[in-house]
Write a protein that binds this DNA or RNA. Structure first.
Lengths: 193, 193
DNA sequence: GAAAAAATGAACATGATGTTCACTACATCA
DNA sequence: TGATGTAGTGAACATCATGTTCATTTTTTC
């Protein structure tokens, strides 16, 4: 594994942990643990904690943006893509939550209001994306009809699934499995019999 | 407000915060903040952090046990009671998760294996409770039929709702609202048309 | 097997946090 | 109003946790 791949692995792990605990409550050792390496080793790849945070966020942001863009391009199977995103375990939506709480709790540490806006933006875009999927599904008769309120609630339910994926310690694959199945249930509840 | 009521308020707040961050990652100041008081004041009511943790857990445990018992007694509207529990924001199920992670992460700090067992027990009991509700609903024709797997997944979905309630910072009442609505959607998805 | 690269874990400095306490604000009653 | 007790504050302190470094060891490469 070359240095760049390793950096990717590090950024993704860091993002997961930062999302789980927020900036202040994650120790760099937590991230090292997540990676199965030691702090000292980690410091061969990153300058300091803040730097790691910034890089990890930027890295994740780019990937997420690319995925959203890809999905929107090909709206027909966007539903499957959305599911695939979940399965792949991307936690960018949830990061918005913890990011915001971090920013609110410690505005002095990271005055990243512009970046917070970015996340809010992406968050909204993702919601819109899902909204489109559902609207189209209903229009085409694949989904049962739901009123706007229920639609919103359902969006939130799925949103919740994303978030929980971040916060629940998954020991082994069982949590992942349940997560996927739970999502399927929600979506299946939508489908017409 | 007399001393006892104040202690109850303190224990409940502490439980919420401990559930949110786990023992090690919560500062006593976090709990003071949640209560809108200062650390110094808090220390007029509790001996130390560990004591607060133990008392809060015991307190919550008793309440939760009482509720489960009450629900089981009156199985007919157990569904509503279960929902009411959610609405009231009890987070004991989720506490199991963070408790366990605390215990796994810091077995030296709290060798509370017996208490962990207690939580696992209550957790299981709650799951069984919900399982009974669903089984009865299907038997009586109120719920649509779902196979055992889907049943399990659905249980998990609802379980997820509980957990998220703990971890998502609810600013204002909107999160609470969405939480309730999300739960309704899941349950409504179960109902026969 | 030597040289380079990667990884370790102990050491250190500094900042965070649990705990205390002298002091203030507030309520209650004469 | 003033005296007295109760509740609350916030600064101070000691200790512990954690970010960061680095000499040393282990692994990889040729």
């Amino acid at each position: 594994m070359n240095r760049e791949e390793k950096l990717t692995r590090i950024y993704e792990a860091a993002l997961r942990v930062f999302a789980r605990y927020g900036y202040r409550r994650t120790r760099v050792e937590d991230i090292a643990d997540e990676l199965g390496m030691t702090k000292g080793n980690l410091y061969l790849y990153v300058k300091d904690k803040r730097d790691l945070y910034e890089k990890a966020v930027s890295h994740g942001l780019l990937q997420w943006q690319a995925m959203v863009a890809r999905s929107i391009e090909k709206i027909d199977d966007v539903c499957e893509q959305f599911l695939a995103l979940c399965r792949k375990g991307y936690t960018y939506l949830s990061r918005d939550v913890s990011l915001r709480s971090v920013l609110i709790n410690d505005p002095s540490i990271f005055p990243l209001s512009s970046r917070e806006d970015q996340f809010a933006e992406i968050n909204r875009a993702s919601m819109d994306l899902l909204r489109k999927v559902l609207a189209r599904g209903i229009r085409e008769g694949r989904f049962r009809e739901v009123d706007v309120d229920h639609l919103t609630e359902l969006l939130y339910s799925i949103y919740v699934m994303f978030i929980i994926k971040t916060y629940v310690k998954s020991e082994g694959k069982s949590t992942q499995k349940m997560f996927e199945q739970g999502l399927d249930v929600v979506l299946q509840g939508l489908l017409k019999k």
